[in-house]
């Protein structure tokens, strides 16, 4: 049942990304281009997602088990450290270069777009590099 819940959530998430315009890199870059002809649409995506998300999180706040059974897996980490900030800066740079972030890239892969295939392969390689680096330098992170 957990897999069914995850599939349905992923499906709705993906449809939402498509409807919102997030799967069009030129629209994402239009939002990030503050100094050019700025398209504020993606701020509306964030507002819609956060308002509805916050209601969901408020409802779930006092739950100790999920509806399908099993623990609530909420991140316990609260530190704002160098890894978080430098990692996020690197991510934002890549996001600005191509206009793809992970969710829309996976959805566009599902739509069979050549450029999304290349982007996702590079993204998986980047994630693999992280795993290799973590394995070699047990630097006390997570």
């Amino acid at each position: 049942m957990h897999a069914v819940g995850a599939f349905v959530a992923g499906l709705i998430f993906g449809i939402g990304l498509m409807v919102s315009g997030m799967t069009d890199p030129s629209k994402v870059i239009g939002f990030l281009d503050l100094a050019g002809r700025w398209d504020p649409s993606l701020a509306f995506v964030m507002v819609g997602a956060i308002v509805v998300g916050a209601i969901g999180y408020a409802v779930a706040r006092n739950r100790t088990v999920s509806v399908l059974g099993g623990a609530m897996h909420l991140p316990a980490e609260r530190r704002i450290d160098r890894r978080l900030v430098l990692g996020s800066l690197a991510f934002g740079t890549g996001w600005g270069l191509a206009g793809f972030c992970p969710g829309p890239a996976v959805v566009s892969l599902g739509a069979g777009q050549d450029k999304a295939v290349v982007f996702v392969i590079a993204m998986l390689a980047g994630m693999a590099l992280y795993e290799i680096a973590e394995k070699h330098f047990h630097n006390g992170g997570k």
Binding site: G87, A90, G94, W95, A98, F119, A122, A125, L129
Partner: peptide, 10 residues
């Protein structure tokens, strides 16, 4: 871009 997104998000 993909490589930066992969490393950075992790």
């Amino acid at each position: 871009a993909g490589t930066l997104v992969g490393i950075g998000t992790r």
